[in-house]
């Protein structure tokens, strides 16, 4: 390998010197979240700023569990996010595939409609959706209501359509000539080749569901059906806010996501940047 020139080295040092403080600023709230999760209530509100962790994490967690049933709420969150991710990836991939691979009447209208939904703010949709699901279908306080209504993801459809569009269509034609059924072409050729995109989309969708607060708060009123973010929100009461519990819960919700993201980062970047360069 060519050794780095001194100009390159200097540029590298300058870049790191600029990025390091920015990284600190970004990481500081996360660190404080972790520190607060280990402090007793009086430590959080002490006059001195405490920057090092203490040993109250387990106590805070026990408090959180007794107040909200956090383990149950997290279990529901995991279930909902996993089911949502699998179903939504399947749905958006199939929709993207059909838009990328087939000619059909009204395709332009369908595409424009999907694109159009991106311009609607979520808050415009959520109330009619709530009325439809809760009042008309009577599905409130069910896992179905948590998973199914947000399933259709316009951005995901467009993302998958783009992914399949960029694949050489001769691959699919070759399979057609061999007599392979369309759904098998999708399943055995299209999807495996779209793996980086599917991985990236899965992370985005999982995080979307994992962090979703408003919809689960609206559609489920029973404490037994609370998801983890809603459980944390319930700690903010009229007269008392349990900051230790909130911070402990926030650490427990953030840590697995960070690990997941770092583990799948390679796929994520590959998926997002696929097709950017030949």
């Amino acid at each position: 390998m060519r050794s780095k020139s001194s100009a390159e080295r200097r540029r590298g040092i300058a870049l790191h010197a600029a990025l390091f403080p920015l990284a600190l600023i970004w990481l500081f709230p996360l660190w404080m979240m972790f520190v607060f999760s280990t402090l007793p209530e009086n430590g959080i509100f002490s006059r001195d700023i405490i920057l090092t962790p203490s040993d109250q994490f387990v106590e805070n967690f026990n408090l959180l569990e007794s107040d909200t049933g956090f383990i149950r709420a997290t279990t529901i969150s995991i279930l909902v996010a996993a089911a949502y991710t699998v179903l939504s990836v399947a749905l958006t991939s199939m929709a993207g595939w059909s838009l990328a691979c087939y000619r059909f009447a009204g395709k332009g209208v369908v595409l424009a409609t999907i694109l159009g939904t991106l311009t609607l703010p979520y808050f415009v949709v959520v109330i009619p959706q709530f009325i439809m699901v809760a009042r008309d279908f009577g599905l409130h306080n069910t896992l179905f209501a948590l998973i199914v209504p947000p399933l259709f993801n316009s951005l995901g459809v467009l993302f998958m359509r783009q992914t399949f569009s960029m694949m050489p269509h001769e691959l699919f034609d070759a399979a057609r000539v061999e007599g392979v059924k369309e759904w098998r072409i999708f399943l055995f050729i299209g999807l495996p080749l779209a793996r980086p995109a599917v991985a990236a989309l899965s992370i985005i969708l999982f995080l979307h569901s994992w962090n979703n607060y408003l919809w689960p708060l609206l559609i489920n009123s029973k404490p037994a059906m609370m998801t983890a973010p809603v459980a944390l929100g319930s700690l903010i009461g009229l007269t008392k806010v349990s900051w230790g519990g909130i911070m402990t819960g926030a650490v427990m919700l953030t840590a697995p996501m960070l690990v997941l993201f770092v583990a799948l980062q390679r796929h994520f970047v590959a998926g997002i940047s696929a097709g950017a360069v030949k």
């Binding site: 050489p168 001769e170 691959l171 034609d173 070759a174 399979a175 057609r176 000539v177 061999e178 007599g179 392979v180 059924k181 098998r184 055995f188 050729i189 495996p192 080749l193």
Partner: peptide
């Protein structure tokens, strides 16, 4: 598939995630 034809494409159109053997047998297996 019912026309009794087979086609060789300009770009070869080999399935990149399969071995040569799997490429050859894919249509028959499916």
């Amino acid at each position: 598939a019912e026309r009794g034809i087979a086609m060789v494409f300009q770009s070869y159109a080999l399935y990149p995630h399969m071995t040569v053997e799997q490429n050859l047998s894919f249509g028959l297996r499916m």
